[in-house]
């Protein structure tokens, strides 16, 4: 449910960028969402459409770029792909990996005019 807050934050940052960069219309928003980030992309899409209804981002296309999860295994000292925080190391099967990528949620780019 906090996806609604996140969508509001995205809109707020778009509006700030609009003031600073002098644009009045947003056509596309690219978000980078890590596989391990605490956000549900479908829910974020749903709320994005709602919160942007009366804004410069009305009807903007939301493009979500997936970022794969990656962790560092202290046991075998390898980087390993993971799809959840409780995954084991692909190489040696150890748990307790240190997350090195895929937990971000960022606004990447905007297509504006």
């Amino acid at each position: 449910m906090h996806e609604m807050s996140l969508a509001e934050n995205v809109l707020q940052m778009i509006e700030e960028a609009a003031q600073a960069q002098h644009f009045s219309r947003v056509h596309t928003v690219w978000l980078e969402i890590g596989q391990l980030a605490c956000v549900e992309p479908q829910s974020l899409r749903f709320y994005f459409d709602i919160v942007t209804q009366d804004s410069i981002a009305r009807n903007a296309k939301l493009e979500i770029i997936d970022k794969a999860g990656q962790g560092w295994c202290n046991a075998c000292r390898h980087l390993t792909r993971i799809s959840s925080r409780h995954d084991a190391c692909e190489n040696c099967g150890s748990y307790g990996l240190q997350i090195t990528d895929g937990d971000s949620m960022r606004i990447s780019e905007l297509e504006v005019e």
């Binding site: 934050n9 995205v10 960028a17 606004i107 990447s108 780019e109 297509e111 504006v112």
Partner: peptide
């Protein structure tokens, strides 16, 4: 925002669409 214009259309009569790089955490 560290906005960088990546591309722009300047042809007369066309919409000046451009891409801005934002690269900021949602939170």
């Amino acid at each position: 925002p560290q906005a960088v214009t990546l591309s722009a259309t300047h042809a007369p009569g066309m919409n000046a669409k451009r891409i801005l790089r934002i690269e900021r955490d949602i939170l």
